[in-house]
Design a protein around this nucleic acid. Structure first.
Lengths: 189, 189
DNA sequence: TGTAAACTATACAGCTCTGTATACAGCAGA
DNA sequence: TCTGCTGTATACAGAGCTGTATAGTTTACA
């Protein structure tokens, strides 16, 4: 099957998109890096935009799986898992190869909410938010959606600040703030 | 003087960069929109990158001035001014013409921290952080840098989430979280 | 071993990009 | 009127871009 080639193409593309941006990365460079012919690309995707969407969708599934498995490995109690979100985040954004969140970058370069690329990225963010809300519900928060919304802002804030500053303490600072928010909600109930 | 033409060019460029992105916006479109000849651009800036940096530097000053004046108009007490930051933020990100924070977008498209564009954007973010820290100091926070760092994460998180989702309640949610963090710090001292 | 599908290589069409070159117009001041 | 400055208009060089066309090669599998 062509699964291998296709997957390799999508993975290579995402790596280059992250480092250099979507518009700044040309098809030819992706093909050269992946060692794939141009016609193979256009036999699998009908445009560069379709390749971008495929890359985002693939990374969506991989990232959510990774996040959930890390959180579950790092903590057992529901309340602790809300904070383990930030430990997992720290592992990611403090890495040497961190180039920011692909989905944020996609929304930045494709501003229109109706754009398929923006929509795919936004769908991913919604999935992450839902996971945070489920953790908040499990932790017995008074208003899980509200707590999740606030923690989500800290998560996204840490991602973008870590990308801009490359400061490795960013996620830990977000965790410290999250501790206050979680404690305030759980003791209030 | 040529000040007028130059300023108009920079303003037009920033507007287009925000809507369509830096790489996706060509010189020719900027010139057409601004009604300026190409040679006028290259007599004032030695490259497109220089124009981008100029646009960011100009917006840096304008934005910080606007933010400070809004915060001072919205609240008097130092503690209230920390929260007024989020009210001002709300005015901005809830507007119809909000297309995200220019400095975030710049860091997204110019990933390398050494890049002049990234550096200019980062310098702006540092200025905003310093202002937040000054407000935290004036409010008598125990650890002003820590509180400012946490509030800064909420501010940046609100900017990026509002851009991705176009949800107009984003900044208010950030404010609610900020209230908890501010209260926790001020009552602890 | 024969056949169909998938992949490669290469050339190219048509467009857009940044940046430069050149010729010209308007205008201020001596 | 001459000079110098600023801006305009236009053409163009050289590169890169997405996407297509065409012909040949490899691979999978019955």
């Amino acid at each position: 099957m062509a699964r291998r080639k296709r997957d390799h193409l999508v993975e290579t593309a995402l790596g280059l998109f992250m480092r250099d941006g979507f518009h700044a990365t040309g098809i030819d460079r992706i093909l050269a890096e992946a060692g794939v012919a141009k016609m193979t690309l256009y036999n699998n995707f009908h445009s560069k935009e379709a390749l971008i969407v495929a890359a985002l969708e693939r990374h969506d599934a991989a990232f959510v799986d990774w996040l959930q498995s890390r959180v579950e490995a790092l903590a057992d109690a529901p309340g602790d898992r809300l904070l383990a979100l930030f430990d997992a985040l720290d592992e990611w954004v403090s890495g040497d190869d961190y180039h920011g969140c692909p989905f944020m970058k996609a929304c930045g370069e494709f501003d229109d909410v109706e754009d398929p690329v923006h929509a795919a990225a936004l769908a991913h963010k919604r999935r992450v938010f839902i996971y945070v809300r489920e953790l908040a519900e499990a932790a017995g928060a008074d208003d899980p959606a509200r707590l999740a919304g606030e923690l989500f802002l800290l998560i996204e804030g840490a991602m973008i600040v870590a990308q801009m500053t490359r400061d490795r303490s960013t996620a830990r600072r977000a965790r410290a703030a999250a501790e206050v928010l979680v404690a305030a909600t759980l003791t209030a109930s």
